[in-house]
């Protein structure tokens, strides 16, 4: 009888020892809760572009991002043109992170032989569960300059060929899989086709991504241009679909869009294709991240 009692006591003792073990962890986790600090949400988007639209993301400090944006011809251009694959439009871009918040970029696209340069600043960064900051906001300022020669328009000056973009990129990672972005846009053209067309144009873009696996997502973007701003051409709003595949330092995006051009001042206002007619451009974006500074490369330990 006595031995049973001692056994019982031993059990209580060992139980209390066990309880102590997990209560140590509880003590840590309680302390953690009290001292909780917010973290910035990462990976709202995998790439610097949804399809054509820029995202709030920018390369990290000291990181260089090389982007190839490639669009074939129209899918409905027939078997003679191999359903568009005979033709190609391309933008080559370099983005560089000066700090964790500030990035610059340059690009050259074949469409109208256009150069572009931009600055992007991460004004606000969304924070996690502690939720002090609900959205990420980046500011984008871009200048574009097309160099295509028009023999019938010898009067075009350099200044006439320049246009500007200012965008407020507002995004929220709603769940680990779903991110949405809203983009109020202001465009300014130094020269427009007719007096009826506006030099200052306002547009609204919206886009998002839904992750389907840990490294893949489906992307959608739509760029709405309120009517009455461009009257001289038969333009349509740009709508694009994409499929992101991420592997290490690469992001590969397969895209479908009714826009052939890739730069803001072109795809928002000069998209002539219509999805309903099959004027769809198939293409891809590939980005590759390089760490160029010593700090970004990571020193040996």
């Amino acid at each position: 009888m006595k031995s049973i009692f001692y056994l019982f006591l031993l059990m209580i003792f060992s139980f209390s020892a066990y309880a102590q073990d997990s209560s140590l962890l509880k003590m840590l986790n309680d302390s953690m809760k009290v001292h909780e600090k917010p973290f910035y949400v990462s990976g709202t988007f995998k790439a610097t572009h949804i399809v054509n639209m820029q995202t709030i993301e920018a390369p990290g400090a000291g990181a260089l991002n090389f982007v190839i944006q490639h669009r074939f011809g129209q899918l409905n251009s027939g078997s003679y043109n191999f359903f568009g694959l005979d033709n190609a439009t391309l933008r080559l871009g370099l983005d560089y992170g000066i700090s964790d918040r500030f990035a610059v970029g340059i690009g050259r696209s074949t469409y109208e032989k256009t150069y572009d340069a931009y600055v992007k600043y991460k004004l606000l960064r969304q924070t996690d569960a502690t939720n002090k900051i609900p959205v990420s906001i980046s500011l984008l300022g871009q200048i574009t300059y097309y160099t295509l020669k028009y023999p019938e328009k010898p009067y075009l000056t350099d200044n006439d060929r320049i246009s500007y973009t200012a965008q407020l990129l507002i995004a929220r990672k709603l769940t680990r899989n779903l991110s949405l972005q809203l983009v109020p846009t202001y465009l300014h053209y130094n020269l427009v086709a007719t007096p009826g067309d506006k030099n200052n144009i306002f547009a609204l873009g919206a886009g998002g991504r839904m992750k389907i696996t840990r490294r893949m997502s489906i992307n959608v973007e739509y760029n709405y241009l309120p009517s009455g701003q461009i009257v001289s051409s038969d333009r349509h709003d740009s709508f694009s679909l994409g499929w992101d595949i991420e592997t290490g330092g690469h992001v590969f995006q397969l895209v479908f869009s009714n826009s052939q051009s890739i730069v803001e001042t072109q795809y928002i206002t000069q998209t002539t294709g219509r999805w309903g007619n099959g004027d769809i451009y198939f293409g891809f974006n590939v980005s590759r991240n390089f760490n160029v500074t010593k700090k970004a490369k990571g020193s040996k330990h």
């Binding site: 073990d21 953690m32 990976g43 490294r215 330092g249 700090k295 490369k297 990571g298």
Partner: peptide
Amino acid sequence: AFSVLLKGFIFRKELMQEHFNDN
């Protein structure tokens, strides 16, 4: 006992840190 928030790990490369947390 030890407890640590994984988001608190700082990498030299920002992209690595993102991949560590997300993937």
